[in-house]
Amino acid sequence: MNLIIMTILKRLALGVVTLFFVSLIIFSAIQFLPGDFGEAVLGQAATEETVAAFRRELGLDEPAWRRYLDWVGAAATGDFGTSFSGRASSGVDRSRPVVEMISSPLKNTLFLAGMTAIVAVPLALFLGITAALWRNSIYDRVINAATLTSISFPEFFVAYVLMLFSTLWWGLSANATGINDADASILDKAYMLILPSMTLTLVIVAHMMRMTRAAIINLLASPYIEMARLKGQSSLRVILRHALPNAWAPIATVIAFNLAYLVVGVVVVEVIFAIPGAGKVMVDSVASRDIPVVQACALIFASVYILLNLAADIIGIVTNPRLLHPK
């Protein structure tokens, strides 16, 4: 057991190190963006003095390493600084803390991701396992072709087709504009997000389902699977009890990858369905050169990636009896 805890702690430490490097990359990538932030924010009409004053106020005249340390130090305590937007050359300052700006969109994104995951992951596992069970049958081929088709279309196309069908023929008039209303219950929100969630499900199921199927079929040639058959076990039991427990590591990796995509890669879906989510915030802030928000979003997205991959690693470790039960 200690071995496992040690391994997990090691992975966690590695995750923190990765995050550190990611923060370096984010920070330096933004340094290389062309143009002057002060001018970009204040507009071309601003005088040189106001730009200089603005830069001083934001600390942009400090050396890069100093700004990096300030940023990372504050971010580590959960403070991502103050947004650049809301300031005007007139001197009126309506800027807000970054945390306040992104917490509500992030919640919406996570809600959509969670809702999609609850449907998509079990669905993908079910389809993958049944496809492996009846491999090379008509069922298997239909599932494979269908999922391949859904992953091959761009997601905006899937989204519009779904919208067309649902609104025209099923009378489903869900849209996400009311998602931030204070009196919207979880069920209301879920209803509003049905279409985007279906779109995302169609996009991610294929990858996970195909991996599940491949990971299981890959094991079916093992001697212990032949042994299970020669014990007179049914095909379903052979797959569920003998193949699946040894196939979790690759499946978990692909699931983690797709869940991460649900958080960080959904901007197109958010735009189409007008969901005020984190992806949209990030794209907007890039357009307006709102550096603190861009940095915060990038760092949060990176953490999600790292955390989910860490979770997949840990699943890989705890489902490996060699590590769980050392000699």
Partner: peptide, 25 residues
């Protein structure tokens, strides 16, 4: 019919014991 025999009236001992046991159980 064959599955009803396998593992009950006819059984099998394989060459590679290490590979023929499921590592997960």
């Amino acid at each position: 019919e064959k599955r009803a025999l396998w593992g009950s009236r006819v059984t099998y001992v394989a060459q590679s014991a290490a590979a023929s046991f499921n590592p997960a159980h």
